[in-house]
Design a protein around this nucleic acid. Structure first.
Length: 312
DNA sequence: CCCCAGGCTTTTC
DNA sequence: GAAAAGCATGGG
């Protein structure tokens, strides 16, 4: 039994951002009934497709997810409460007219409010490694440690895997888990440690999300953990804890900061000190409260328009 | 064999 | 304290 819900959207949502299940981050806006976005939120399969320019439909085996009724959850998950037109400061288009023009196609990008634990683990898989391999790791984690879900939909069966619960990952061992972490045993061990901390309540992500910590405090708290540095900490904050002020600086961001914003901080080696300096510098250009949201549009714009990368 | 990929940790000054 | 080197793996 699938619950169906329709929801009106302000503008078409065409791009999402998620590492889970190897999902491509493009959610095609084709209206051909074959293209859908399928994911699993805490064992609830969720299928979403766009039925017109202003409407999407959602199917779910449960009418309530995370304590929210379906339409409410969708609005929350896809951050439909955020108007992406307000993400950049008003002065931005005047200061960077050429860049502003390049960014036109990226205002339909949505940062998702993803599950904190899922985000914690998936971004721990994303260190010094290519996108394809990151997604492969996450897919394998779900296939090996998540629950298999078979969903009859649109005349066929969709096979989905939920993202593993902390308890599942806490119970495995590094050698076994390393099959899913690009054969990297150290990364596997770090993931197990993090999963155990969550499972045993020593790392309370929900409490972190509700806390009023400053960005710096949150980043320090997360990066104290083995396998998590400033960049991954900021990713967890941005994608998993709803902290749209968090601005993760990776190799690509570093490049566009230099190219587009003439950041003066030395960029050759990204040390913790230069990371924080860059972070402070970009906050003078972007709206500090939505620096990460804006940064993510810039990130994908840079990769696609400038670097001509077709992988996500 | 080189370098790169949505960095982190340990060593060294 | 902060900068430099070391680390680990697959892919082009």
């Amino acid at each position: 039994m699938l619950y169906r819900s329709e929801i009106k959207i302000i503008k078409d949502i065409s791009i999402k951002e998620s590492l889970f299940s190897g999902q491509s981050f493009i959610w095609n806006t084709l209206h051909d009934n074959t293209d859908y976005y399928a994911t699993v939120i805490k064992n609830n399969p969720l299928i979403i497709r766009q039925i017109s320019d202003t409407e999407i439909e959602i199917f779910c085996s449960s009418s309530v997810i995370n304590g929210m009724v379906l339409p409410e959850f969708i609005e929350h998950y896809f951050t439909l409460d955020i108007n992406t037109d307000d993400v950049f400061p008003e002065s931005f288009s005047l200061l960077y007219p050429k860049l502003w023009d390049l960014l036109k196609g990226y205002f339909s990008l949505r940062i998702l409010r993803q599950d904190p634990f899922e985000t914690l683990i998936t971004f721990m898989c994303a260190q010094g490694i290519g996108m394809q391999l990151i997604r492969k790791q996450v897919s394998m984690l779900a296939e090996h440690y998540g629950e298999k879900i078979v969903l009859p939909f649109s005349g066929k069966e969709i096979i989905l895997h939920s993202f593993p619960a902390a308890q599942q990952l806490a119970a495995t061992d590094p050698l076994l888990l390393s099959r899913c972490t690009n054969n990297n045993r150290l990364r596997a061990a770090n993931i197990i440690r993090a999963a155990r901390a969550v499972d045993e309540g020593r790392l309370d992500l929900d409490a972190l999300q509700k806390s009023q910590l400053t960005l710096g405090e949150l980043r320090n708290t997360l990066s104290r953990r083995s396998g998590i540095g400033f960049k991954i900490a900021d990713c967890i904050a941005l994608f998993g804890l709803g902290r749209f002020d968090a601005f993760p600086i990776d190799t690509h961001v570093r490049q566009y900061l230099e190219e587009w914003f003439n950041c003066t901080t030395p960029l050759r080696s990204l040390t913790p000190a230069s990371y924080l300096m860059l972070d402070a510098e970009i906050r003078r250009v972007l709206n500090p409260d939505f620096a990460g949201y804006a940064g993510h549009m810039l990130f994908h714009c840079w990769r696609r328009e400038i670097k001509k990368l077709r992988t996500f």
